[in-house]
Design a protein around this nucleic acid. Structure first.
Ligand SMILES: [Mn+2]
Ligand SMILES: [Mn+2]
Ligand SMILES: [Zn+2]
Ligand SMILES: [Zn+2]
Lengths: 141, 141
DNA sequence: GCAGAAAATTAGAATCATTCCGAATTGTAT
DNA sequence: ATACAATTCGGAATGATTCTAATTTTCTGC
């Protein structure tokens, strides 16, 4: 029974995901992202995570987020040149940025749609990643 | 016959586009973008534009690019957190980033495709802008 | 053409999200 | 326990972009 075991037992997150050891800091950050679903920035994560980890550093928040992204546990989302945001939704989806409220909404693709079907790609192209971003407003109903 | 007239006559770009007065600096930058089509960064524009405008400043390059974007004469393109790139293609299109060469290719949509058709958007949504980005490689033929 | 007024350009300083660094701590394997 | 590796941490450095204030250019009535 290592201390790592105890940490994992306490919050229900396994001690390793996709080959990444889930330290206390990584677990708490991952748990926060799963709970909020608001696509927070690194700094927003930093401010909110202090409740559970008062001594964590901003550098560690960046380290953890990068590790989680690298191991495909979360996704990094960029809007223009704004600070990066982080998303725990691993399903293929796009992001709608509501300019009125500043909120970000996940956007699913309609079933049966294959993105490469609608694009006129050069031949012999291997696509590793697709990103779809929308900006606009939720109109009055 | 103002000096502005003379500048425009010399390079075939009108003295005003979309309500933006096309100064010498704006004209040369626009001409460079139209000619190269390589989606250069602000700094790449700065380095290349010195051939025609040896005394231009980097601040002016940023100012001009922003003015051209604001007046919908060119588009600003972002890949993750890399420096912004600039694109003179005003047709609706996406961007394919070839990781092998670092080059960026415009990607057309297949005819008759309406992007909002394939997305499961929240109701009463007004989309102002859509961005599609692809990363991958051109495979051996 | 000539005096403002307005707009554009410029060099350099400031900003700020992110990355880097080196030291301290923690975890793992033997 | 000891040795080695990985992680965390505070603070410094980075770098694309923006800001500022001074200068230059252009425009708008006369
Ligand atoms: Mn963008
Ligand atoms: Mn991106
Ligand atoms: Zn998302
Ligand atoms: Zn383009």
């Amino acid at each position: 029974m290592t201390s790592q075991d105890l940490i994992s037992q306490a919050n229900g997150i396994p001690e390793e995901i996709n080959g990444l050891r889930m330290t206390r800091q990584r677990q708490e950050i991952y748990k926060l992202l799963m709970g909020e679903r608001s696509h927070p920035t690194a700094n927003e994560v930093f401010m909110r995570i202090k409740e559970s980890l008062p001594n964590i550093s901003l550098a560690t928040v960046y380290n953890c987020l990068e590790a989680l992204v690298q191991h495909h546990i979360i996704r990094q989302v960029n809007f223009d040149r704004e600070p990066s945001r982080y998303c725990p939704n691993l399903d293929e989806h796009g992001h709608f940025h509501d300019e009125a409220t500043g909120t970000i909404h996940d956007v699913k693709f309609k079933p049966g749609i294959n993105l490469t079907d609608i694009l006129d790609l050069p031949p012999h192209t291997v696509i590793k990643d697709v990103e779809i971003t929308l900006r606009g407003q939720l109109a009055f109903s």
